[in-house]
Design a protein around this nucleic acid. Structure first.
Length: 594
RNA sequence: GGGGGUGUAGCUCAGUUGGUUAGAGCGAUCGCCUGUCACGCGAUAGGUCGCGGGUUCGAGUCCCGUCACUCCCGCCA
């Protein structure tokens, strides 16, 4: 017989009736009747009720056990009487009569309860993560994560991809996020950087001729945390393919995602062929490049309406004259919504820092009119034009806001989410994927007014590369794409620029000299000069995929040992100070701020 | 770097207009209980009210500062 167990805590049933068995696990719950004691024994797999009465001489010892003590019990499986069956347990038709027991792991008084639905502070959970992870919900989330990763590996292998590891100690790169640095002992004064992503390596793998690569890759970026963004590290399904176009990447990823989400969630997929939305259109219709397509609301541009003489909305007209835009959200058949609904949205918008959201409802008695505080400022003709632009009908309402393009897109996008939620028109039981395509290659830095890469400097510009208009860099589009699900950005990818001359040219637009590019990206630019295949890829975030599947709003709920917002590991006490000797070996001196 | 929220028993929280000895549930300890599965019943212990300062006859409560956690903005090619 096995030393610790013959079965796990989720597998005994009537078929085992009368068998002598051994179970090991944690004391999940005790129910002490004085002369009769029930113990729910828990392991990774489930619960089994064990029972003992006062006739056993070890009764009082068992009675005094702390919850969460690890014990081994030997006993006999017995059928429960009909009125004591627990249909909620898989093992609920039987129980185990304890004949002997042994303590395998003592447990001190718990800093927090395990077997409870009660929530407790993040700080406590992270400090005692090993206890927190025993709780059902998060325990299952972590198992889900493992299964998803296993499935991804199997699928990718099936599609002909090879998994490779790439270095964790690499070089710092000037573009992108802040690097984590690691001092080099053998090279005084020099530093490694942890990779923000295996970007250059995966391109080098293509140059090396491996054709299709993937990796569940750790990525390190020293930036501030958010609910959906761990500080420090996260994982990507990094993939890259040679001799392909954008559509080939889409095909692989769509197939993979459809398979993952069908296998691991009961929610419906709104699209199995993911819609492709141009970046420009996304910004116009949704105000963001990560739209939640479960929300049917669409944004329209009404700027020109406010240039008409028969519109008397003077505040907006003035702003429009000085370069602001007006954009609107149409809600269908909301004429009977109470005034408080409309004012509530307006009040909410003001709380978001906007000047508010104006609104009215289209009405018709003899003539078409607008009902609402600012309704009388619109002529019938202007209302007809608005109805045409927004495809409105009588009984519909519009909310509209005016501002400079970035602020306006921001607030109207938030308003679209808010109004959608208020109206209850977002289907929580589905996943709506989409591609955002045709990103601009460059953008203007708001503060410095300089041209910079808007996304990834290694992307291939679109169109005939001999006819690119370098004088108007902001018009250059790239083969650059994002995949978005339910308003969550899962990943960016691109067809890469594998032509060194073209890369120098693009870098020069962003203000990098040739020798600077050679120096900073030496590995890659050099490699591209020795016969590089056309290639491209993408890198979906594993943590966010699991977050969507587990229906969680916080990435720490699907991360086993996360750091807190301050990038500290409260359990391991990281980061920590190091000894003077360690510093000396690394040729480092500290210059601490008080 | 900036803004919001929270901080009271081991845990989750209540605490009125500033007013007696700061409460409840869970947990812990002790006692009772042979069919529970959130078992039940009784008792006991457990508090620098995050920390520091101020106002006041009197502060958990008001004011100022500070710290911790969290959410958001900046940042994240």
């Amino acid at each position: 017989m096995h030393k610790y167990r013959t079965h796990n805590c989720n597998e005994l049933n009537l078929k085992n009736n009368n068998e002598k068995i051994i179970l090991s696990g944690w004391v999940n719950k005790k129910r002490d009747h004085g002369n009769l004691l029930f113990i729910d024994l828990r392991d990774n797999y489930g619960l089994t009720q064990c029972v003992v009465d006062k006739n056993k001489n070890f009764f009082s010892k068992l009675e005094k056990l702390q919850l969460e003590t690890v014990i081994k019990i030997e006993g006999k499986v017995v059928e429960r009487s009909k009125d004591t069956i627990n249909s909620e347990l898989k093992t609920g038709q039987i129980e185990v009569k304890i004949e002997s027991f042994e303590i395998l792991g003592e447990c001190k008084e718990l800093p927090m309860p395990i077997f409870t639905d009660q929530e407790y502070s993040e700080e406590l959970r992270l400090k005692y993560r090993f206890l927190d992870l025993r709780r059902k919900k998060i325990h299952e989330n972590i198992i889900l994560r493992s299964k998803v990763i296993e499935f991804i590996r199997t699928e990718m292998t099936k599609y002909g991809f090879l998994e490779f590891q790439t270095p964790i100690l690499t070089s710092s790169s000037p573009e992108g996020a802040r690097d984590f640095l690691v001092p080099s002992r053998l090279n005084p004064g020099k530093f490694y950087a942890l990779p923000q992503a295996p970007q250059q390596f995966k391109q080098l793998i293509m140059v090396a001729g491996f054709d299709k690569y993937f990796q569940i890759a750790p990525c390190f970026r020293d930036e501030d945390a958010r609910a959906d963004r761990s500080p420090g590290e996260f994982y990507q399904l990094d993939l890259e393919m040679s001799f392909i176009e954008q559509e080939d990447v889409f095909e692989v990823v769509e197939k993979l995602f459809v398979n993952i989400f069908k296998k691991f969630s009961n929610k419906k997929l709104k699209y199995e062929k993911f819609p492709q939305i141009k970046y420009e259109d996304a910004m116009l219709y949704y105000g963001t490049d990560k739209p939640d397509l479960r929300n049917p609301l669409i944004i329209s541009d009404l700027t020109n309406v406010f240039k008409r003489d028969d519109v008397k909305f003077e505040i907006f007209k003035k702003l429009v004259n000085s370069g602001s835009l007006v954009r609107a959200i149409l809600t269908k058949n909301t004429k009977d919504k109470p005034r408080s609904f409309f004012d509530g949205i307006d009040k909410w918008a003001k709380e978001q820092g906007a000047s508010g959201l104006a609104y009215f409802t289209f009405e018709k008695n003899n003539n078409i009119s607008a009902k609402g505080p600012v309704g009388k400022l619109f002529s019938e003709e202007s209302l007809k034009e608005i109805m045409k632009i927004t495809k409105a009908e009588i009984g519909d309402s519009i909310f509209f806001s005016c501002g400079k393009i970035n602020d306006l897109e921001n607030i109207i996008s938030l308003a679209r989410d808010k109004i959608g939620k208020e109206l209850g028109i977002i289907n929580e039981d589905e996943f709506a994927f989409c591609w955002i395509v045709d990103y601009p290659m460059f953008e203007e830095d708001k503060s410095t007014k300089k041209i910079k890469f808007s996304h990834n400097p290694f992307s291939m510009p679109q169109g005939d590369i001999n006819k690119i208009d370098y004088n108007n860099p902001l018009n250059i589009k790239a083969y650059q794409y994002d995949i978005v699900c339910n308003g969550v950005e899962l990943s960016s990818g691109a067809i890469r620029n594998h032509i060194p001359e073209l890369m120098y040219k693009l870098f020069s637009i962003a203000g990098y000299e040739k020798n600077e590019v050679d120096q900073k990206f030496s590995g890659m630019i050099n490699a591209l000069s020795y016969g590089a295949p056309p290639h491209g890829g993408i890198a979906p975030g594993i943590d966010r995929i699991v977050m969507l599947l587990a229906n969680e709003k916080n990435i720490r709920e699907v991360t086993m040992f996360p750091m807190n917002q301050n990038a500290e590991d409260l359990m391991m006490n990281a980061p920590s100070e190091v000894s003077p000797n360690q510093l000396k070996e690394l040729n480092l001196a500290l210059n601490k701020k008080k």
